[in-house]
Amino acid sequence: MLTLDSVWKSNSESPSEFILKDCSFSFQERRIYAIVGTSGVGKTTLLRALNNLVPIDRGRILLAEQDISALHPAEVRRRISLMFQTPAFVGDSVRENLDFAARFARRDKIEFSALMERVHLNPAFLNRDVTQLSVGQQQRVCLARTLATRPDILLLDEPTSALDDDTADGILTLVGEISKQEGLLTIFVTHRRSHARKLGEHVLELSDGQLRILS
């Protein structure tokens, strides 16, 4: 479904160092992958490259056998959706954020109230200012916004890093449920192995520029 084919990606801070070195791996559809690795190893950069937010130096990233560099950038991002580590917003209210995502998704319009319920948020929050929500609730809004694009692939960049254990557990369980219900390929990066084991059907490690299967 999503394949890294001999990908090289340099570190933007230090272009002579490589985060991905001739890295190849195939992610299968409808599976949940957790990627672990130490801080600064390049997990975030890997997800950003998969979402086409940053260029790769060499190699190919294939989405359903098609090189993403040959696809329109919007098409890649509609099919591969990324949820960032820190909640960031593109509108003041929850509704504005969901509207923004739905506007560029070019898929069947999704019912926002149902979407809110799916991420365990009260639909009455739709008109609330995002800054009035807790960090856990903000992350749920970000997850709902990511789902509003109706993606085939969900990328999650340490979505639990700013959360306490209970809230983090709730988000992980929720992501697992949604991925299964929607039949999404989900790739989730974390530096906490317990979280990787809780959510990941396959646990990978990123080190020395390569992805290795741990379990």
Binding site: N51, L53, A74, R77, F84, A88, V90, A101, A105, T149
Partner: peptide, 11 residues
């Protein structure tokens, strides 16, 4: 951050 979120949403 919000620029990257908007781009990642296909804007």
């Amino acid at each position: 951050e919000s620029v990257e979120v908007a781009l990642s949403l296909a804007a």
